[in-house]
Amino acid sequence: MVNSGGQLFTIEGIAAALIMLATVFIIVNTTSVYTPGDTHINDMQLEVIGTDALKALNYPDNGTFGKSPLVILVENQDGSGFYTAFNNSLNNRTGENRDNIQFMANITYMNRTGMINSTPLNASRALYGGEHAVRVSQWIIVDSYNGAALPPYNIFPECLSAPSCAGKHAALVEVLLWRD
């Protein structure tokens, strides 16, 4: 005679199977799988926007003026001017709403002793360390001694006297971008 040892009772089996499948279905549908492949898209978008904003700032407004707005802002050490121009360009959209990308900008250059120095330009808010930021940069050529300013001064603080650091210097404008 057939006994019932080791048998799955049919009704319970079906019920258990349905419960398991339903559970799996619900779980899979309610969570989105965030793969490393996805993060690079957000990074790429930030990078494109940041690079373009710097590039657009680095075209002179017209042919005779010669210097781009970015170069002028750096030469004049105009941090608030940079904030306005860059923020305007960075968060500009075709629709009504503006974007909300945060940034922190530095200028990196070689000083008189051959050391690499970095000075802050401006930031929309401080970087605390938890943010996932991307970095964009743009090389510029600046007149390192601003004789037109009153009083004349050196753009790079490490240059001690005017003649020693007069002339054209290359500098790198680096910007960290992140979203809150």
Partner: peptide
């Protein structure tokens, strides 16, 4: 009056 560049954004 020379050509000038204006700012724009494309999406």
């Amino acid at each position: 009056t020379q050509p000038v560049l204006s700012n724009a954004v494309m999406e």
